[in-house]
């Protein structure tokens, strides 16, 4: 098997895979930019082939940015193996959904809320800034470990990368991350309430409880589109107007 060259540069560029994110190609140009060092090394001396494959690598693509390395590796390998252009395009399209879903479950609804909730809980318990540092270190250690591994996995398996990812520990890890996010997300809620309401009187507690219950009821009726942000700002505006109007 051909050795992967340009991988380090590709991984560095993958840190900015969404720098030119847009509604037309989404991450396409970022993925093309990340794949460029690998393709340049693979087709050294064959400028026409290098530019042809780079053109394909810059087309529409969208997945979770933390797992896009798998697509970069797989597509580059497919090009090196001489897979027909239409099949490379199909591979690229086919990878968007699974890599998006898997990465989002692993990071956006798993690790990130789990670690952020743990940090909230730690700070609420009076541990100072250590939980915040822990959040940063753990997230980035996992993210920086997954990138090279996925780039290598994509390069190793080429068009068969989908099956390789399914057989890897990643799907199981995404389920576990979701469970962790659920537990830690729940854990943080009473701790936040305690931290900010511990020194308030019974009237304030009842008032806050009524606000929470009212907002939850409004969200239940209005649906997910009405987030806590506008509801909170509306309530704050009412408080300020009331304060302003007082003699």
């Amino acid at each position: 098997m051909a050795r992967l060259k340009g991988g380090t540069r590709a991984l560095i560029r993958l840190l900015g895979v969404q720098a030119s994110w847009n509604y037309e190609r989404m991450q396409g140009t970022g993925v093309g930019h990340a794949a460029e060092p690998v393709l340049r090394a693979a087709f050294e001396g064959d400028t026409a082939r290098y530019r042809e494959t780079l053109g394909r690598a810059s087309a529409f693509f969208n997945a979770n940015p933390y797992v896009a390395a798998a697509a970069v590796g797989a597509e580059a390998r497919a090009e090196v193996d001489g897979v027909p252009a239409q099949q490379v395009d199909r591979l690229r399209t086919a990878l968007c959904g699974p890599l998006g879903s898997l990465g989002d479950r692993l990071f956006w609804t798993g690790l990130v809320p789990a670690l952020a909730s743990a940090a909230i809980a730690g700070v609420a318990l009076g541990l100072g800034w250590w939980p915040v540092l822990g959040f940063l270190v753990v997230h980035n250690a996992i993210r920086l470990a997954i990138g090279p591994w996925l780039l290598g996995l994509g390069w190793e398996h080429g068009v068969l990368v989908g099956g390789a990812i399914l057989r890897s520990p990643l799907p199981r890890a995404s389920v576990l991350a979701g469970h962790l996010a659920a537990v830690l997300g729940g854990l943080a809620i009473p701790l936040i309430a305690r931290r900010f309401l511990v020194d308030t009187g019974p009237l304030d507690l009842v008032g806050t409880g009524a606000l929470v219950a009212g907002a939850l009821a409004v969200r239940k009726v209005a649906g997910q589109r009405l987030s806590a942000l506008p509801l909170t700002l509306t309530a704050a505006l009412a408080v300020l107007l009331w304060q302003w109007g007082r003699p």
Partner: peptide
């Protein structure tokens, strides 16, 4: 109190 209530609503609905 409004900020805490809003944060709790966001944390509960998000989780």
């Amino acid at each position: 109190l409004v900020a805490v209530a809003g944060a709790l609503v966001a944390a509960i609905t998000g989780a």
